Each structure stands twice: as C-alpha cells, then as structure tokens.
Amino acid sequence: MTGLLPEDALGEVPVGFAIVGHVVINKIDDVGAASEFRTFSYEVLAGPDDMNVELSEGNCIGPFAVPAGKKGVFVWANDLNPDSYEALKDAIARNKVSTHIRPFCQDGHTFIPHAADSLLALTQTNSNIITLPAKRPRNPSSSAPLPAPKTLTLPPTISHFILNLPAIAISFLPSLIGLYASSSSLFAPHTTTKLPLVHVHCFSTKSEDNIREGREIAERISKEIGYEMRAIEGEGDVDEEGMVRITEVRDVAPKKRMFCASFRVPRDVAFRERVVKV
C-alpha cells in the first residue's frame, strides 16, 4: 500500500483491524473528540447496522476488571459513561464476581482519591470482611455437616491503579497528589506495605528502541505530579522511587504507538497536601 499511495496519504494506511461480532466499521473521527463518554462516529463497511454484539475474551466479558476479579483480585472499577457502567454491572453479574468487583460511575479525577478513601474507611469501620455462604458438597450425606462459611478480608490500601484511556490517562495523574496525605503510617518504613503501582496508558511516537519516547513520557508524568521521574533505560526497577518502566503495547498508526508507563507513587507525591477534594 505504501508503494501505491502518494506520500501525503501514507498517514492513513491502517496497521491492523479487529473483528467484533457481525459488523465491520470504520471510525470517522477520533475517539472522545465528540463526547466525554469516549464514543465516536462511524460508518458501516460490512454487515447490518446493528452495534449490539457480544464479545468474550479469556472466557470473560470485560477486558480489565472482570478477568482480575475471576482470579481473586479485589477491584474498584470505574467508567464515566453511564451505558458502559451498566454494561460493567451486567458483566460482573454474568461472570459471578460481585464479591470481588465494585462498579462506580464517576469522573476519573474524583474516583482515584475516592477509591483510596472508601477502601480505607471500610477497614476503619470494620466493614472490610466479606462472608461467603457455605457451599453444599455435590454428594452430601445426611450426617455430613455443612462446611464453615468462607471469609474474605479487603486490604486497607490500594496496590495498583490502571489508567487505561491512552489519549487522556496521564491528565488524571494529579489526582495521586496527597492520595494518602493523612495515612503515611500505613506504609513503609512503618509497615511492609508499599505505595501503589500506577500503570498509565498513553500515546507517543515510535522508534526502534523507544528510548526517546520513554524520556518524553517520563517528562509528561513529572509535569503532572510535580516530581521528577526518569524512564528506566537498561538497569533499573519501578520499586526505585522516581523510576518509570515504559512498556510497548502496540502500534496504532504509522507514526504512533501506545505505551504503558508503570511507576510506584513517590512518597513526596502520596503524602503531600491533597489537590483533588473528594
């Protein structure tokens, strides 16, 4: 295709496609350009103009929260779009993970500190214990007692944040400032608990080694949280304060690539005075 198209049209060469259900569509504007709910205009290329399809990935419905919940991870999941929020609740019910996933429909800037505060509040009010009903054995005998109910204990602090909207996810990072401003005693060196790891998706340019892109992404993160961050180049670890691991996700255009930047919230950021008021 690059040999046939004129130079000024090479930016439109597709780098991949996905098949979902029975329709084939083409986006005719950028995702999120017309709506804060991340919807977009489209044209139908093949199949009926019916967007009601069902997608299953890894025997789940839902790409992030549900697979984690099925593995026994507690997840506070958020989506600003009311329709997506309803679909999230439906996916939680379909996949039977309501004990591990709690859905929210909030602005992301508010949700980040709200998630930390609400989880901590459950511990402070002794509401962090979930009791599961006892399951009867498949072939019970009349004299066999029921097994004891199983209990699950929610942790007081968050281990990971996943910010998965690459076009705007970095802009949510100021919400990490002051995340645990009044709860520093919950973390090292007072305990063995580490501050949360953040996995933020974003777009940048593309090169063979991603070094230039890593430095550019680290600079953007530094600007948002008011703390100097450096991309790991060779040796280095995200547990080292101020270090960011840049992982290539996929190409999205001839000159555009999606990345995931992972870093642990620096102490100076987490314990600073909070910016976002909940």
Rank of each mutant, 00 (worst) to 15 (best):
V23E: 04
A93S: 11
A134S: 13
P63Q: 00
N139Q: 11
L173G: 06
V198E: 02
I246T: 06
L154R: 13
D50L: 12
V278Q: 08
T153A: 10
T205V: 08
E36M: 07
L4K: 14
G214E: 02
I61C: 11
S142Y: 02
E219I: 06
G236H: 05
A270C: 05
F203A: 09
D50V: 14
V31C: 11
N26F: 07
V198N: 02
E57G: 12
A169N: 05
K206M: 13
L120E: 00
I217D: 04
V20K: 14
F37Q: 12
P149W: 05
K194A: 15
H160N: 09
E228T: 15
D117N: 04
K135T: 14
A261G: 08
I232C: 08
E43L: 11
V53I: 15
S183K: 09
V97D: 02
I19P: 09
G234W: 06
E7S: 15
D79I: 05
M229L: 12
M243W: 00
V15F: 08
D49W: 05
G32I: 09
I112V: 09
G47V: 12
I225T: 03
E248V: 09
C105E: 00
H199Q: 08
T39E: 07
R267C: 04
A65W: 03
V24G: 10
G242V: 04
S127E: 14
A18F: 10
I211N: 12
K256M: 14
A188N: 02
G11V: 07
V97A: 02
V265I: 14
F161H: 02
K223Q: 10
V275I: 14
F172M: 10
A134K: 05
V66R: 04
P254S: 07
